[in-house]
Write a protein that binds this DNA or RNA. Sequence first.
DNA 1: ATGCATTTGTTCGTATGTATC
DNA 2: AGATACATACGAACAAATGCA
Lengths: 250, 250
Amino acid sequence: MGSPRFEPVRTVRAYERVVEQVEEAIESGALCPGERLPSERELMGQFSVSRSTVREALRVLQARGLVRSRPGDPNGAEVLPFTPAALHKSMTTLARVDELSLAELVQFRMVLDASAALLAARLRTDAHLTEMDAAIARMRESLTAGHEAFGAADVAFHDAVTRAARNKLIQICVDVVRSIVLDLVKERIAAAPDGVALMRRSITHHEEVLAAIRAGDGPLAARLSRESLYDYYAGHVRPGERAALRALLE
Amino acid sequence: MGSPRFEPVRTVRAYERVVEQVEEAIESGALCPGERLPSERELMGQFSVSRSTVREALRVLQARGLVRSRPGDPNGAEVLPFTPAALHKSMTTLARVDELSLAELVQFRMVLDASAALLAARLRTDAHLTEMDAAIARMRESLTAGHEAFGAADVAFHDAVTRAARNKLIQICVDVVRSIVLDLVKERIAAAPDGVALMRRSITHHEEVLAAIRAGDGPLAARLSRESLYDYYAGHVRPGERAALRALLE
DNA sequence: ATGCATTTGTTCGTATGTATC
DNA sequence: AGATACATACGAACAAATGCA
């Protein structure tokens, strides 16, 4: 017989054991969103650890967006439905500490948005098309209402497209990266002297994308999607990095 | 003059204030990877909070992958270089609690991998090509060495491709999703009766992708990349969801 | 190589503000 | 309005682990 395969013993903190168990219960479905955890005092009994350890575990679970606890709540911490908040947080820190350039972010969105448009052209229902129509109509109405209303309508359009594509991961990632990019350029967008002209051109682009999706022409929808993003954001990207964006335009 | 715009006061926990300040120091570059935080007792002095509060803040920062603290270390917690561990964690959670299907994950990877191949065909250097050659050679050598060696060589190839594409976000996301997918199908891959045949076909696909990248034919490299992934993973995807994957193959 | 001082991990007790019944 | 149970926060204490003289 072979010699036993010893594995390095990693000392695992008490609070981590608590995190693991609660996490497992939530991810396995044993605990559903809306349900409550036992109170901290009860948890310290069930896990045989002190109050501080329970609290450190709850802080970690809260940082991961799995639970939320409020003072005075007679029930324990609440199990939350999944939100991409944690994903958003880690991508944001990635963008900051790892010096992710605006070009990389826009390029990433061009890739995902184009794929969503491609899939949407094949998988969209009439209900999706109606939503996209309505979103573009709201964009047009928002021309004089300011950037925030226009932005909201824009988000609604892209959300309808990604939902039509039926891929939650693409949907979430597009949304996360969109908000990060928006955060990086929003002051410059608001200060743009030709803001209304930019919005008009953006509406035209969206209408073209929608027409391609309606016609079921996936490759065209994808190409138009990339061009639309390039047109809207290229001005904010450092000139030396624009070539990398154009590489996606054929 | 207008009436003052009051905003709702959100009570923010003491530990959150600590997290915010340390996070800001790290993300702004005031604290670099490798540097040390003050000890817990010193931090409780600087922030005027108790040690429990300091510890809860450190647990959150540790969960986000920004610092690491070890018992007994006379220096404080260590500031870590960025790792996609937190990103990986939140995506894994997303895959579990939000019932992300294998098809969605594979589709996501098809999209990103194809884009990386497309960009690599335009931006690759000779050094990148050499790395890809070496990786494929190692894949061939690993045919008899088992799945883990083959998988490692496969990772090296895709890593070279994504690095050639010069987009860190794509690179990290591909890597994260690849490991999640691998985790989902690894037992079935290992149990496949025709494992060697699958590996041979995979090598052929990789060679074709590399040839297209070397020739600078981005669209071809992208298409071959998608086909390669489809061929490798479609068998593990539920039949009803394969149509969504084929939608990306034209 | 051996202690020693310091730090973290963990526990316990206590006081305070808050939400629910 | 009062009582109850809860989370928040503080402080002191001990054990285990680490780095350094």
